[in-house]
Design a protein around this nucleic acid. Sequence first.
DNA 1: CTGAATCCGGCTTGATACTG
DNA 2: CAGTATCAAGCCGGATTCAG
Lengths: 139, 139
Amino acid sequence: MEPRNKHVTEDCRGVSEILSRIGDKWTVLVVTRLGQGPLRFNEMRRIIGGISQRMLTLTLRGLERDGLVTRTVFPTIPPRVDYELTELGHSLLEPVRVLGDWARQHETCIKASRQRFDGTDEATSASSPPSPMGPRPSA
Amino acid sequence: MEPRNKHVTEDCRGVSEILSRIGDKWTVLVVTRLGQGPLRFNEMRRIIGGISQRMLTLTLRGLERDGLVTRTVFPTIPPRVDYELTELGHSLLEPVRVLGDWARQHETCIKASRQRFDGTDEATSASSPPSPMGPRPSA
DNA sequence: CTGAATCCGGCTTGATACTG
DNA sequence: CAGTATCAAGCCGGATTCAG
């Protein structure tokens, strides 16, 4: 990546990258669950539900790479692997919680806004096909 | 014990959705810039830099749909469109800032961890202790 | 039980060209 | 200036299969 420059935009680039990192489909779920204590692979898989092995592996791997979780292998039979949040991982828990609070707090509002927005189009022209980006009602 | 435990996953689903929303490539940049005041389309385009018309349009459109920004059209020639954060949009600014602070604060740490992770080619020559610190198979 | 490798479909992104 | 339409490329995520 580019070196960190002076401008705000550059700062936000870094932020954006981090957000992309944790903004993917599963990372937040995994981190949050792990925030309640270490878990084994299939425990997580079962608890989270709907995540494939592949995605769980990739998510965990990425988290480990970023130093957010530790991977502990017990060379037993059957094998056992524990995943646990590092200190850094725990520190992420709080910002995520803040965002989570915001999300839950405004979830209804946002969904309502979406329905309003999506419905505005059809209300004016009923026979129009569903366009991915309907026309704007000029203010 | 904690009834909250059972709901965390569901809660996080919603959070995850919101995160996906703002976790895309440009949303955070746009919102942050808009947090400093209303902007016109090409102003933003120029300020952010590297974003295509298409992506800026789509990002703005999504933000508008979610009720986070307002779009004000001035039917002049040449046309002029102002984008501005709504109250809801401003409320998002804070959580984003929190996450942004975290990101900047741990940016170095994370990058270091990545390099460490990518570069770690464990020899495994040492004894594999029965203690939970087994070697990680290289990718 | 944990996880790697493969194939594949879909969404997201981006470049380009055109319109009011 | 602001926005749309279209097309192509790339990444993401899922199902399946194989291995230790």
